[in-house]
Design a protein around this nucleic acid. Structure first.
Length: 283
DNA sequence: TGCCCCCTGCAG
DNA sequence: CTGCAGGGGGCA
């Protein structure tokens, strides 16, 4: 599910909640979702939370957890704060653990972090926290699109490794630029007024520049509105995100374009739904 | 580079 | 029932 804005939203929420807490116990309700020795985590304190691309990192003393939520993963924190008058405020997802809860972290102050994942594509990995090892695991990822060093020229160079493919398809390649998924790829093309089917090799420099801006706008808006909830996404507090209310094309099949009024179309590109406005977006 | 696979659930 | 859903790894 989550793309960069959703993972960023969870990261921001977790950071407020779990820094300094000590892991008292960990329960694996679905052993396949957890890679490594979970016993190593007992008694460890949470030092830092971070995000790289669509991956969340949690640094403990001497260890790091890497978490990928894939299509349907959720990481929800539940502490006293989520209860008002004895009732949980997590009505979006109901009481936990539940049917789709795969891993439960219990902290020393009685709070819990739940990893729910309906489709079971997601995972949590324990690794040693040597910088080298982490860099090796994350080393293939392309640039972070919201960092200053992500320039339109870098975007151009990386995209041009796939000159014969449709631009929207290449935006999904995590080695080209990291963190973009199916929602924000369509949105970025709309922002850039670019036909998602256009072959990368045929883009002009002007279009690479617009696409660079369009990517940053789509992802920043995603974060601003707390991410996109299509079906499963919730933040670390169990609340949904509202970006899709502000999206220009994603999920707006047959609805009027917010800029020009013509109907948004849905097509398939390499098997994935792609939304675009035929009159705003040109070759 | 393209296809299949990992899973479950829901809409048509 | 079929096809589709915020992802991506492994294989030819």
């Amino acid at each position: 599910m989550p793309e960069l804005p959703e993972v960023e939203t969870i990261y921001l929420g977790l950071q407020k909640r779990i820094i300094g807490l000590e892991i008292k116990n960990i329960k694996l309700l679905q052993p396949k979702s957890f890679i490594g020795d979970s016993k190593l985590l007992k008694g460890k304190k949470v030092l830092k939370v971070w995000r790289r691309a669509k991956i969340l990192g949690i640094d403990l003393d001497g260890l790091t957890l890497l978490i990928h939520l894939k299509m349907s993963g959720q990481l929800v924190f539940q502490g006293k704060e989520n209860f008002v008058g004895g009732h949980p405020t997590l009505d979006m997802i109901g009481p936990m653990p539940h049917k789709h809860t795969r891993v439960v972290f219990e902290f020393n102050n009685g709070s819990h972090l739940y990893f729910n994942d309906l489709r079971r594509f997601g995972w949590i990995k324990v690794i040693g926290n040597s910088k080298l090892k982490i860099e090796k695991l994350l080393g293939n990822l392309g640039p972070e699109p919201l960092e200053k060093d992500f320039t339109w020229q870098i975007l151009r160079t990386n995209l041009l490794r796939h000159r014969n493919m449709p631009v929207k398809v290449v935006l999904l390649d995590q080695k080209v630029v990291s963190g973009i998924g199916n929602i924000y790829a369509s949105e970025a093309c709309f922002n850039a007024k670019l036909d998602p089917r256009k072959k990368v090799g045929n883009l002009t420099d002007g279009q690479f520049k617009k696409l660079h801006k369009g990517i940053i706008k789509a992802l920043s808006d995603g974060i601003r509105y707390g991410g996109s909830t299509r079906a499963h996404f919730v933040d670390a507090e169990g609340q949904k995100g509202y970006f899709l209310d502000y999206a220009f094309v994603y999920g707006r099949d047959k609805k009027p374009c917010k800029k020009c009024g013509s109907l948004i179309e849905k097509i398939q590109l390499v098997g994935r739904g792609t939304y675009w406005c035929k009159s705003c977006q040109k070759k």
